[in-house]
């Protein structure tokens, strides 16, 4: 009996797991609820409206998203007869879990006691994990067996080809500048935040994250006026909520990665010993920075329409990809000059 409890405890306190549960699941849920509220409020301000209000006028409608979540949770999940049942149910769940998986491998502190994994190649592992989840959106579209879902899934597949290379190139430019794949070393090397040294790579990464998470000029797979809700057309209830939340969770994971690489990670604070100083405070700083980054992401909704699919691909390959390459070149130049 004691052995089983020990086993469970050892699983829970296995560093990647608790980081995934604590920061990945709990943290991202809180941040995503806040960000969706912020996005709705900010968009409403630009559009001369109020946004969520009536649920709690004093909190400016902050619990609206909690209410939405409860509604999704209690709604009937309808599985169409023509859908591929197992995949239809599994795809959104797997996509959501996988979209926060990169968080399990990134360091949130410089204290080695709280690293989830050995950090030597962590940037590569994290980037590799970001590329896993999109396939399940395509699966969701395919399993729905609906024309709009399939078109949406295919669009998702096209968009992946556009952003993946850019995201990897622009984020890896940091490791080219510092000559290491170790995220902790990258963070510690930033006496000046890397965004100031290499704004081109940051811009490329910013655009690629917008593309990866259906941010607004690139909100193509789910574009309502052509394909209803893209891959999620047939979903309802909690599964639909998961699908919608997955994009934001993915954006959160990307934001944390971008904060570590471009915005100095836990920068003004130097992590010390003990769980408070060594893990909680630096991780909170990282999460707060990621939340601010996500707020900037969410402003694009009120300013831009959406690109056409081919224009998005063209822009990605003709404009953003050279930008990422240029950023990489700049990083190499900085490494040669020894700026960082």
């Amino acid at each position: 009996m004691a052995g089983i409890i020990d086993l469970i405890l050892s699983i829970i306190f296995y560093p990647p797991i608790y980081q995934l549960v604590l920061v990945g699941l709990t943290g991202s849920l809180v941040v995503v609820i806040f960000i969706i509220w912020f996005e709705r409020k900010a968009t409403a301000r630009v559009q001369r409206r109020l946004g969520p209000y009536h649920i709690a006028p004093r909190l400016a409608g902050l619990p609206q998203l909690v209410a939405d979540l409860i509604r999704y949770a209690f709604q009937e999940v309808i599985i169409p007869r023509t859908a591929d049942r197992e995949l239809f149910v599994l795809a959104p769940i797997v996509a959501t879990v996988l979209s926060i998986l990169p968080i399990a491998v990134v360091p949130l502190t410089s204290n080695p006691a709280y690293w989830p994994i050995p950090m030597d190649y962590s940037i590569l592992v994290a980037l590799a994990l970001t590329t896993v989840s999109p396939i399940f959106l395509i699966v969701a579209g395919w399993a729905s067996n609906n024309k709009f879902s399939i078109i949406g899934g295919v669009r998702e597949a096209f968009v992946i080809t556009a952003y993946e290379m850019i995201a990897i190139m622009s984020i890896l430019s940091a490791s080219a500048a510092v000559l290491t794949f170790n995220l902790v070393e990258i963070v510690e090397a930033q006496r000046i935040w890397y965004i100031l040294l290499n704004p081109i790579a940051f811009l490329a990464a910013f655009l690629s994250v917008l593309m990866a998470t259906s941010g607004f000029p690139f909100e193509i797979p789910e574009s309502e006026n052509e394909v209803v809700a893209g891959p999620f057309t047939e979903y309802s209830g909690l599964l639909y909520g998961l699908n919608m939340g997955a994009a934001y969770m993915k954006r959160f994971a990307f934001s944390i990665l971008m904060v570590l690489v471009f915005l100095g990670g836990w920068s003004p604070y130097t992590p010390g010993e003990g769980i408070l100083s060594g893990y909680l405070i630096p991780s909170l700083i990282v999460v707060a920075k990621a939340a601010i980054l996500m707020m900037i992401f969410s402003l694009t909704r009120s300013i831009y329409g959406r690109f056409r699919l081919d224009q998005a691909l063209e822009g990605a390959w003709r404009l953003v990809f050279p930008m990422a390459v240029l950023g990489f070149g700049l990083a190499l130049l900085e490494a040669y000059l020894g700026v960082m």
């Binding site: 409403a44 301000r45 559009q47 001369r48 109020l50 402003l299 300013i303």
Partner: peptide, 12 residues
């Protein structure tokens, strides 16, 4: 966009 974000001029 930012101008209206700062000063929304709501009419709701």
């Amino acid at each position: 966009g930012l101008k209206y974000l700062v000063d929304p001029k709501r009419i709701t």
